[in-house]
């Protein structure tokens, strides 16, 4: 197993994309603009040997939706690339072509948060049932079930 990555090493390779900070002894976080994420991931894959995608975490900050891509490699240091998208029009380019496991995570995020991943080969439903109403994203903070609306399952007979 290789040595852990240091903050300096990561700043050297990814510093041009955004602010680099040490979140914990083996977690380094880089915050950046949405349009640089893809290049940053390619750079992390190439220069920092990040060969695996641990997860794509999502959080709703009301005005913005946050996406955090956690990458890891033989150095066993988690590089978290974070970005914010505007809640009213959350859109970002897919990374499923450069990191195949992202495909299924992006489908999940699209389902629950309504973030569109441009260029995803099949952004179909994954988590929510097929009769779930379009345009409702249950993990957003402002989401509340609307009384009287049908959210799937068996329809109650209202006779």
């Amino acid at each position: 197993m290789n040595k852990k990555l240091t903050l300096e090493e990561v700043t050297g390779k990814l510093g041009r994309f955004g602010t680099v900070e040490q979140a914990r002894f083996n977690r380094i976080r880089v915050s950046m603009e949405p349009d640089t994420i893809r290049d940053a991931i390619i750079a992390a894959q190439g220069d920092l040997a990040c060969e695996r995608l641990l997860a794509i975490s999502t959080a709703d900050n009301t005005e913005t939706l946050e996406l955090i891509y956690h990458l890891i490699g033989p150095h066993r240091t988690v590089i978290s690339l974070a970005t914010r998208l505007p809640s009213h029009l959350p859109k970002i380019r897919t990374i499923s072509d450069i990191l195949p496991p992202a495909g299924i995570y992006e489908r999940q995020i699209h389902d629950l948060f309504g973030i569109t991943f441009d260029g995803h080969p099949g952004l179909n439903r994954l988590m929510l049932n097929e009769d779930w109403p379009e345009g409702e994203y249950p993990l957003r903070k402002d989401w509340k079930p609307e009384p009287g609306r049908f959210y799937g399952g068996i329809r109650e007979d209202r006779s």
Partner: peptide, 14 residues
């Protein structure tokens, strides 16, 4: 292979 996992979403995260 295409996958659909939508039968068991219980909203635990929410």
């Amino acid at each position: 292979l295409e996958i659909d996992l939508s039968y068991n979403h219980r909203g635990i995260e929410k």
